[in-house]
Each structure stands twice: as structure tokens, then as C-alpha cells.
Amino acid sequence: MSLLSLSRIGHAFFGRTVLEGITLEIGAGEVVALVGPSGSGKSTIAHIAAGLIEPREGRIARSYRRHAMVFQEPRLMPWATVEQNIGFPLRLSRHPRSTRRAAAGAAAEAAGLLPADLGKYPVELSGGMRQRTAIARALVTAPDFVYFDEPFTALDVALKRRMQDLVIASAARASFAALFITHDLMEAIRVSHRILVLDRLGRGIAGERRLAGDPGARDEAAIFAQRQAFLTGDPLFAHIHELDERLRP
């Protein structure tokens, strides 16, 4: 049974077609990475699937209970403390204040934040801590589907890996399904069960590769070897690094 299914989605910004014939399905508990060169419309797909953008054509079927999203920027409310930011989705779904505190505290701890950080404002946090807060906010409602929209692009390499481990661990624990948008093939191989490659002009999904084993169970050497194999031997990934977004018609 699939939690999310897009069929023949197409979209245009100001008359310029950016997506056409996008069809994909994501099953329960499955983390699917969507890779493609920058500017190919990956984020737009995630935003359409999450209901932030109305597509020009195509059908979306969502059968999950609740979704959440981690954006490229943390998108925290600067006037609210870490605890209030994490508890925001609960506030929107009208949970009482007392259970909100406890749930926010638990989510923060699971995302690696310290109890002392709960009273701080986002301006007082480092970039990594802010993204941790955003992840805790996404997971606080125990969603069964999470959208990750290039969430770690702005972080440095070491921090990125810690965040990926956090995602892998929480996906395994909470067994949510996810659509993970990224342009980093290494990241896609680390966190996902299956990789979809977007056509470089957004004309459909060019192809998919299923990865062996579960995310988190793969060792670093195997991940690196897989990446090399994809980049050098697999025609599907030939275009992934080559497109300059300024040259798009």
C-alpha cells in the first residue's frame, strides 16, 4: 500500500514548464531519495506533494495520517523559544499546553538538544542546533510521512553526517515514510531505501535504483563504492552534476 502517490504531475511557473509527467509512489516506512541537478524542480515536487503548491495538472493521492516537513532553512519563529517552536505543530492541532511541554521536551531530546536549550531563542543557537530544532518540530507530532527538502545543504560535512544519522535513527525508530530531496548522491545513498533520479529538465522521473540493505546498516566503504559505481558506471546518474541552472531555457 502506498502512502503517497503522484501521477503525471505537471507544473509551470509563469508559463514556463518546470515539471511534466512526474509519477512516483512511496510505501509505508520507506525512505525515498529524490536526486537531480540543482534547478531541476526537485523542491517543487516536494512542495506540490505536501500541498504547498497547487500543481497545474496531475493527481495526488495521500493516504498517510499526518505529514511534516523539514525545510532547507530551519524556518523557526525568531520570537519563540526552542520549546515553543518545537511545540508549534501541537499548538496548531490544539493539544493542551501541559502535554505540549512534555512532548516538545521528548522530541528535543530525541533530536539531540539539551534541556538547557529549550528556553533559548533561535538567534542564540548555532546552525546545527537550529536544524535539530526543525527536525524535532517535524517529528513532535509523530507523523507517518515526512518531507525533507534539502535539509542539510547549508551545513558543513561533519554536521551533515550527524544530521543524516539522526534522520536514519528516527526513521528506524518511528518508522515514518519520507521523501528526501537532495542533490548530494552520498546523502541519498546513506539515508534512503530507494533513489529516484529526476530528469534533468524535469520531464518525468528518469529512473530509480533500489539500494541493498537498510539505511544505517551500510558501512562507509560500501556507501562510497556505491556512489562511485553510480557516478562512473551508471548512465542514469550521468547528468546529475553537470547542469548549470543559469543555462536553463
Binding site: A50, G51, L52, A68, M69, F71, E73, F88, L92
Partner: peptide
């Protein structure tokens, strides 16, 4: 910040609560 608007929308806030919250 329209990013915050989109964030609230993802977490289920309608236009009115996007305004008030």
C-alpha cells in the same frame, strides 16, 4: 517571512491561523 507561512501551512494552519499565529 513567507517561509514561515509555508511552514505553518505544512503543519496544518489555515489562512486565519497563519495570520494570528
Amino acid at each position: 517571512d513567507r517561509g514561515l507561512d509555508a511552514m505553518a501551512q505544512v503543519f496544518g494552519a489555515g489562512p486565519l491561523r497563519r495570520f494570528t499565529h
